[in-house]
Design a protein around this nucleic acid. Structure first.
Lengths: 103, 103
DNA sequence: TTGACATATCGGGAAATGTCGATATAATGA
DNA sequence: TCATTATATCGACATTTCCCGATATGTCAA
């Protein structure tokens, strides 16, 4: 577990599209269609589906997911051709706790 | 009460110096000297004291305090020549709540 | 009023970020 | 092996942010 940098987290959260992605990923079943046999909740949502909902290019979506990942807010799992992204609830809790306690 | 924009709050928090200021203001008595008759806790800390601790110019300090204020994170009180800044604990709680509940 | 001090604002150059299209890489199946 | 599909990365340009010095504004004291 690398320690999380609040600054990096806040930077990652300072963008409408990235915040949107995190909100969608909070309840994937409510926002994304099924993906042949891969559990949205357990594994995550693939980049194509996120790209389709965001009104941006695949390139941008992929980069934003990287930013979220570097901040520790999501976790990626590669299965075959697809990469599935899922929220890291622990990191989200940690940052809320940081604001409440340390900040 | 204008509603707070999480994005603006996160942008305000995306900077080391501004985060530092907020941390100092959490316990002003621990970080700043007395200021002739003005209560650090009740009223806040004046810009000069913050400038002195921050390793930046008065201009930058003033602008950073404005950013924090526009985000709703601090509140300013002018008394004579001085402007005293104090944290808005409600806003801080709100943003922590936002992360926990909505995000 | 004038001078001195505290703070705010303006203008700017350098660095970071937003976002794209083009291309590279990885994995699959024919 | 090759074509196809999913994702990642690169290069670029426009916009924003960082942080400064210079200057303006506000306030008090003499």
């Amino acid at each position: 577990m690398k320690p999380i940098s609040p600054i990096d987290v806040f930077k990652a959260l300072s963008n409408e599209a990235r915040l949107q992605i995190l909100e969608w990923l909070k309840d994937p079943a409510a926002h994304f269609g099924p993906q042949g046999g891969v559990d949205l909740i357990e594994i995550g949502v693939c980049v194509s589906q996120i790209t389709a909902k965001l009104n941006m290019t695949q390139s941008t979506t992929s980069q934003y997911l990287s930013v979220l990942q570097r901040a520790g807010l999501v976790h990626a799992t590669r299965l075959g051709k697809w990469t599935y992204y899922k929220r890291d609830e622990t990191a989200l809790s940690q940052i809320a706790a940081y604001i409440q306690k340390d900040l």
